[in-house]
Design a protein around this nucleic acid. Structure first.
Lengths: 236, 236
DNA sequence: CTTTCATGAATAATGTATGATTTTGGTGAA
DNA sequence: TTCACCAAAATCATACATTATTCATGAAAG
């Protein structure tokens, strides 16, 4: 899936066809996975060497990422990885709190049995895993939400959400989930499925709002802890 | 101000410094102003000739616009202008309905006398103009909203709104405003300023929600009329 | 002695120019 | 209509010029 910025999400046929696209995907992955840390400098010549291409496709890939907001440019200084810090995550989460209930309403009113069954399946696997495999859990969790939103008529809203979700996911996989939160996640998902299944839109929205709000706050808290530890490590 | 996609809005020091940036601004403007119509093909060599540069900066500008979602790429077919049609505007408007109340709340709670005075000034000029100068009105209207949101702590939300607003503005300047809507706009703005001034957050939010919902629907209706006329012109 | 500051070479960004390769899209013949 | 062919254009590689930044070095100041 090639992210295309908030407005796009249309042309699906251009995945890694071109060299620039492959580089784009690669750099994007490295940023989201944390391999390229905050403010890491993205030297064109170096990236070209790594990907065994000329500098041209690299520069284009970086410009695309710039349009997407994942890298920042300073004149004559080239590109750097946009720092994904606490404030940033908080902001993304708060936008999600606005978007997801909106996206969910459409789903509740248009969901098929198969859709609900799919949610139950994902939920079952999450319960099975019980957070033993965090990356897998994160994928399942994202798929859970994606299942609900992917067919929404508002492609712009879906695009914004999707782009944000990929950032959130990338962070989720590398921070721990508190025990209390683990129980809550499974509970909230169960409630959500029930509400959807019963076609109780308002209740579903209420549950979801609670769910993503809590999840977001938990994520920010974990980042705060991470940051505190890092600061202490420097001082100590 | 150089738009940077949803997540950006950070580095402000890079306006048209580089050649690629100037081209980016230029193409972006031509798309938003309608000079480059829906699906218009963006040939690299042609754009390079027009801007009197090599093809390299052009390609980079296009990639940036791609990341922003304003142009679409098909492999080996180059770039085209993303069509800004009725559905798209509807989607953007609906996201605005979610974001603006959120952004407004912060403003109401942090606005200074100077802020309110500025709003009154903009409103006064709009009343004076009385829609005689549409481009000017659109600028004032955008500035009105921008004044309320620009300092919001959530840069992501502000960035999304801002990017969307530029699209909405570009369309607003070229469609007529119905007489009834003209009266309503001024009235709603007055109500909004009053509510803000009185620190009545919920009322302000209610007025704003009504305002942008109506404005959005009006815009979509105008586009529908435009489209209908275009279809009839073809048939007739 | 440490910090600050100037300096110049190495590094890198940006842009130009050109050509190779491949794909696309149209044109005319079978 | 189908298919071979060709011009146009996209994509990429390569090489190079220019400009700006970075960074290590060393001098000067505190």
């Amino acid at each position: 899936m090639s992210g295309q910025g908030i407005l796009a999400l249309s042309a699906h046929k251009e995945d890694a066809q071109t060299s620039a696209n492959a580089i784009y995907e690669s750099i994007r992955h490295d940023i989201l996975s944390g391999k390229l840390g905050a403010n890491a400098r993205l030297k064109v010549s170096e990236l070209a060497r790594i990907h065994d291409t000329s500098t041209n496709p690299v520069r284009e890939a970086l410009q695309q990422l710039r349009g997407e907001g994942l890298v920042l440019f300073a004149p004559n200084q080239g590109a750097r990885v946009r720092p994904i810090d606490m404030e940033f995550v908080r902001d993304v989460v708060e936008v999600g709190v606005l978007l997801e209930p909106y996206l969910l309403r459409w789903f509740v009113e248009t969901a098929s049995d198969a859709d609900v069954a799919k949610l139950r399946g994902l939920q079952a696997e999450m319960e099975m895993l019980n957070f033993q495999d965090k990356p897998r859990h994160t994928v399942l969790d994202s798929t859970f939400h994606e299942t609900m939103y992917a067919r929404h008529y508002n492609r712009v809203a879906y695009g914004v959400w999707k782009q944000h979700r990929e950032i959130i996911s990338s962070i989720s996989t590398r921070v721990p989930i508190a025990l209390g939160r683990q129980k809550a996640i499974l509970l909230e998902h169960r409630d959500l499925i029930e509400a959807i299944s019963a076609q109780e839109t308002d209740r579903a929205v209420a549950v979801l709002t609670q769910h993503i709000g809590d999840a977001g706050r938990h994520l920010v808290d974990q980042l705060r802890i991470e940051e505190t530890l890092a600061t202490q490590a420097v001082k100590g």
